[in-house]
């Protein structure tokens, strides 16, 4: 294809996005658009799948039948999100095997928050309340993103995430209304999950490499710092309601800006975890790789059986 023709196609493409039209899998798209979307959607899918592990850690120990069932259902939802995000990603011409390969070799990233350990039952509350809360803030704008399959997947994801967030808050509420031990457990979970949750919204705008292009393609509608501020403004009153203290001595309502001021985020910790040196990076990756490797014979069997069945059917037809 000639350079001029490509330029022309690109212009038409950008114009379609400007008009809020959805880009569909069979449409022409610039290679960079395709690659960026594979990166972001797969990162999102991987986060759902790795995110099953810290919560899965408490299924066997959930404190009541009701909680056990709710937690199982929640982790199952995450598997479902993974499934339709991988499917959305596959429409861009990459296979699920390739995507797993990228995850297992460390080429693809997933949300760093899942590299923190879940140490008590209250962590199930804190994850739902804070982590899913931050995820929703990140994800709601994506329901209007330009790539059709991703936007449609996100509509489903967001509905379920907001249910999870309420469920997490309700776990925290029950703890904060409970015994001293339960209150302490809730506060401890907030102390451990607060800062990683703020980091979840991504590096500061000055450090963020993808923002400008992503804004243009509607992969982003607000900057990381704006989203972070929104999360804090929304979450502080909820912590008050729970009678819990946000572990930030510098957190203060600012009349002038109409937002909360907050302390300095430890970005060294963030980058350390991103680069694979968080408390659970190795365990999480090992769990995923083991599940995949140990399941190879099962997947092979399913393929072999399907082929045999097909062969028999064809023989019968002859």
């Amino acid at each position: 294809m000639g350079e001029e023709k490509i330029k022309n196609l690109e212009e038409q493409f950008e114009a379609r996005i400007l008009r809020d039209e959805k880009i569909e899998p069979k449409d022409w798209m610039p290679e960079k658009y395709r690659k960026t979307h594979i990166r972001q959607i797969s990162q999102h899918a991987h986060s759902e799948i790795v995110g099953m592990l810290p919560e899965g850690n408490w299924i066997s120990r959930a404190p009541s039948l009701r909680r056990k069932v709710a937690l199982l259902a929640k982790v199952q939802d995450e598997a479902g999100h993974g499934l339709y995000l991988y499917s959305a990603c596959e429409t861009l011409g990459i296979s699920r095997e390739e995507l797993y390969e990228q995850l297992h070799t460390g080429k693809a990233k997933y949300s760093s928050i899942f590299n923190y350990p879940t140490l008590t039952w209250a962590d199930m509350g804190a994850i739902g309340w804070l982590v899913d809360g931050a995820a929703i803030i990140n994800q709601v704008p994506l329901c209007n993103t330009s790539y059709g399959p991703y936007a449609r997947a996100m509509i489903r994801v967001c509905k379920e995430e907001s249910f999870h967030q309420r469920q997490g808050f309700e776990i925290m509420l029950k703890l904060s209304e409970g015994s001293e031990e339960q209150k302490t457990m809730a506060q401890d979970a907030l102390n451990r999950w607060w800062w990683p949750s703020l980091m979840m919204l991504g590096p500061t705008d000055a450090e963020s490499v993808h923002t400008e292009q992503s804004m243009k393609w509607k992969l982003k509608r607000k900057t990381n710092d704006e989203l972070r501020q929104q999360f804090i403004d929304q979450t502080v009153p909820q912590a008050d309601l729970l009678g819990l203290t946000i572990p930030d001595p510098e957190l203060k309502w600012n009349e002038t800006t109409g937002h909360y001021d907050f302390g300095v985020i430890d970005w060294d910790e963030f980058w350390q975890v991103v680069k694979g040196h968080g408390p659970c990076n190795k365990e999480r990756m090992k769990a995923r790789v083991d599940a995949w490797d140990n399941g190879a014979w099962v997947r092979d069997a399913a393929v072999a059986y399907a082929e045999k069945k097909q062969e028999r059917k064809e023989k019968k037809a002859v």
Binding site: I49, M52, G56, I59, S60, V75, A79, D290, A291, G295
Partner: peptide, 15 residues
């Protein structure tokens, strides 16, 4: 079965 959640041979069987 709950112990297996997140460790299945693929997503479909996990679910």
């Amino acid at each position: 079965l709950g112990e297996l959640c997140g460790h299945g041979p693929n997503l479909e069987t996990d679910i």
